[in-house]
Amino acid sequence: MIVGSGPASRGEFKLLGGDVISSNHGSPIPIGYGYSAYTVCCGYPYGSATGNVLIAGGTWTGYEGWNLGALSNSLGTVVVSNGTVSIGPGIYGSGKPINVGASDDSRGDFTMAGGTFLMNGVGSASDTGWRSESAATAWVTCE
């Protein structure tokens, strides 16, 4: 799954109720990506995509997590206002599951205003499971 997949595209995923179970086959879900196989032939630039995820109810069980802002100039946003989010442990690998500003010159925003967030199976006491690229912008807000 990719939310905001193509260059300069926008994807929205809104969970209002029910249950989502996602392993995404081994890698964090790109939220705000902008990749195209047609970049070389057709001149589409990478990036500049927007992906928004709203969790306002229900449960999201995501073993592989999220990359917020997965290519240059892309924006990935997750807002949790209610419901339950459970991230990890990764089924296929050991990479960090939550990457806020996952690529150079990208931006990731994570806002939690309600609900429950559980981070499971992170490797060690000093490993939070959260990561940001050094040249990216990351905002994590708990209101």
């Binding site: 799954m1 990719i2 939310v3 997949s5 595209s9 929205e12 996602s22 047609y38």
Partner: peptide, 30 residues
């Protein structure tokens, strides 16, 4: 499953998914 992909992976696409009940299982690759 690509949400907002543009035609054939092109640009300027828009997609929206809303789930309000039931069970959604995603094991698609990225």
């Amino acid at each position: 499953m690509d949400i907002g992909s543009g035609y054939k992976g092109g640009q300027n696409g828009y997609g929206q998914v809303i789930i309000s009940n039931g069970l959604f299982v995603n094991n698609s690759g990225s």
